[in-house]
Nucleic acid binder design. Structure first.
Length: 566
RNA sequence: AGACCCAUGGUGUAAUGGUAGCACUCCGGAUUUUGGUUCCGUCAGUCUAGGUUCGAGUCCUAGUGGGUCUACCA
């Protein structure tokens, strides 16, 4: 056996997650004729976040893998909290993430008529009844997980009476909250969701799609499962919390004799240093901890988009995190790895100096300018080159000079040689200090004329290479440096402490005046770059003609910083 | 307390009764005109106790630990 066939043998076994295994089994047994249809069912009452991204990927990718499709369905059964504005944002976010639901855009509210008919059917079968009890009474009769509930005094109304009452509910004859329609199942069930769950409530509110057509609205539990069924969803993938709802959905499907969608639950993804609670996120926005839902520190898709995270990286991240049923906490370092991996291949490199220190090349003629050719991406030659002006006065990073450097320091220091990326090797001859503060104000160097990048005959091997800009040619820009929003990996997991106690006060640092190379003058919002040796940055939408603003997406890995910590 | 779900290196996820593998992180090394990238390497794991079996991470029982469930929200 040769090596080639061995390799073939090795990769023949691709490992499947438990959902894919179920789908493959269904295909093998011919269930639904091999058809696969999933759905992503957001409620249009908030912004999508990293947790939703996971659900979107799981649903769309599971279907796509087996030649199936995915529906987008808005679960809009509560008119009070839902708005059209959210619908547009959600669609925009899903498209940006890279998924397409084509023409299959549905709304639970599309099915209000059908759902009403389903309710009538159940009443006629003696499986649903109108209850006049107050919310408090219903809650009291519900019992607890360890004690059975009590049956409502209205539970044994006749079919005719229930039918009449329900029709009058629909006709608007009763005030809000006066009565509800409940499924007649089992008040003693171990599963609280089977203790005669409410199917319909009276609620006079303007619905974002159906307007004032209805004054009764189905509960989520009476809408979700049947919506799946109506759309003939084959595999309804949702999070673990709905595991207790499954018997109820199956009960409705069975009693109504409708298409049997199968619900499969998986553990939702948690990411360290991030929170996804809608309420807590809202508080960050409302109380000004962040600038809005799209603040680049937010775990929202709009926030991550503005931060500069490429959608492909988010998809890869969700894929690598995997799918299973156990609780998980994915390290944010995996996300950062995926972002860097993507950006490393795609982003052009440029130079910017965030914390400038002036360098004077004393043996370089005053007024002379050379245009140095610099590669745009060493990972991708096809991205070509650009030129950068080089002159007698330059800026380098303040961190890249030390008055009295240790031996492992490869950057500029008195008497040391260092390469300027794409330009010359410089020798540091001295420096000037502010007599009052002691701060270094200027560094004096000489350059080796025969060390020009690409035609270096000097034979000098400089250990370090620095980024730089030409002082008279550099443009100014604002740069926003972001760090994780919280100082604790699970800020909302502390019983004794509020998550806001872990808010990272240093999560945003603004550099008002950074120097960027002149080629960046034409950059426009959303353009992405690697600032050499600093990190990946994108142009923020706050930028104006006069002033460019960059967001730091993520730093480069920094082994020097790591060494220093030790 | 009851029902249900879950348990593999620091983290996440494979192995479907037959050699515990992969990725991230960490650590070390090589290369490098980015202390980036790339490449190589090290460390490190089946919750506990019984049982079934020639053989158990996998099947069974019990225990332990974690999670979920008692909205006219979704």
């Amino acid at each position: 056996m040769n090596d080639l066939s061995k390799k073939e043998d090795n990769k023949e076994k691709e490992s499947l997650n438990f959902i894919e295994q179920i789908i493959e089994e269904d295909i093998r047994t011919g269930k639904h004729g091999g058809r696969v249809l999933t759905r992503f069912p957001p409620e249009p009452n908030g912004y999508l976040h990293i947790g939703h991204a996971k659900a979107i990927c799981v649903n769309f990718e599971a279907a796509a893998k087996y030649g199936g499709k995915t529906n987008l369905r808005f679960d809009d059964t509560n008119p009070t909290t839902e708005e059209t504005e959210y619908v547009e944002n959600i669609k925009n976010d899903i498209r940006w993430l890279g998924f397409d639901w084509e023409d299959r855009e549905f709304y639970a509210s599309d099915y209000f008529g059908q759902l009403y008919e389903f309710a009538i059917q159940l009443i006629e079968k003696g499986l649903a009844y109108v209850d006049d009890s107050t919310p408090e009474e219903i809650a009291a009769m519900k019992g607890t997980p360890t004690t059975p509930g009590k049956e409502s005094p209205y539970r044994n109304r006749s079919v005719e009476e229930n039918l009449g009452l329900f029709q009058r509910m629909r006709a608007g004859e009763f005030p809000d909250g006066a009565r509800v329609l409940r499924a007649r199942i089992d008040m003693a069930s171990d599963n609280m969701h089977m203790r005669d769950p409410i199917m319909y409530r009276i609620k006079r509110d303007h619905h974002h799609r159906t307007g004032d057509e209805w004054c009764i609205y189905p509960m989520y539990d009476f809408a979700h499962g049947q919506s799946d069924s109506i759309e003939t969803i084959t595999h309804s993938l949702c999070s673990l919390e709905f595991i207790h709802h499954r018997p109820l959905y199956n009960w409705f499907i069975e009693k109504l004799e409708i298409f049997p969608s199968r619900q499969i639950e998986f553990a939702r993804m948690n990411v360290s240093y991030m929170i996804t609670s809608k309420r807590r996120l809202l508080k960050l926005v409302k109380e000004g901890y962040v600038s809005g839902w799209d603040d680049p520190r937010m775990p929202t898709l709009s926030g991550m988009r503005r931060r500069g995270y490429p959608p492909a990286a988010i998809r890869t991240f969700c894929d690598k995190a995997g799918v299973a049923k156990r609780d998980n906490l994915i390290e944010i370092s995996l996300l950062e790895f995926c972002v860097r991996d993507e950006l490393n291949r795609t982003d052009p490199r440029v130079m910017a100096v965030l914390n400038p220190l002036k360098v004077v090349v004393t043996n370089y003629p005053e007024g002379k300018v050379e245009h140095m050719e610099v590669e745009n991406n060493p990972e991708d030659e096809s991205m070509g080159t650009r030129t950068m002006p080089f002159s007698r006065e330059l800026y380098i990073e303040r961190d890249d000079f030390m008055e009295d450097p240790p031996k492992k320091y490869f950057r500029m220091g008195p008497g040391r040689d260092v390469r300027l990326k794409g330009a010359y090797i410089l020798r540091c001859e001295g420096f000037e200090k502010d007599p009052e503060t002691g701060a270094v104000t200027e560094v004096h160097c000489t350059y080796y004329p025969d060390s020009k990048s690409g035609e270096d005959t000097s034979g000098i091997k400089a250990k370090g290479t620095l980024h730089w800009v030409s002082a008279p040619h550099a443009k100014e820009a604002e740069v926003r440096l972001y760090d994780r929003l919280f100082t604790d990996p699970q800020p909302d997991a502390h019983e004794d402490k509020d998550y806001l106690e872990f808010f990272n006060e240093n999560s945003l640092e603004v550099v008002e005046k950074a120097y960027i190379e002149p080629s960046l003058a034409e950059a426009r919002a959303d353009d992405r770059f690697q600032f050499l040796r600093l990190g990946y940055f994108c142009v923020d939408s706050d930028s104006t003609e006069e002033k460019l603003i960059f967001n730091r997406t993520v730093t480069l890995k920094d082994t020097w910083a790591k060494m220093q910590k030790k």
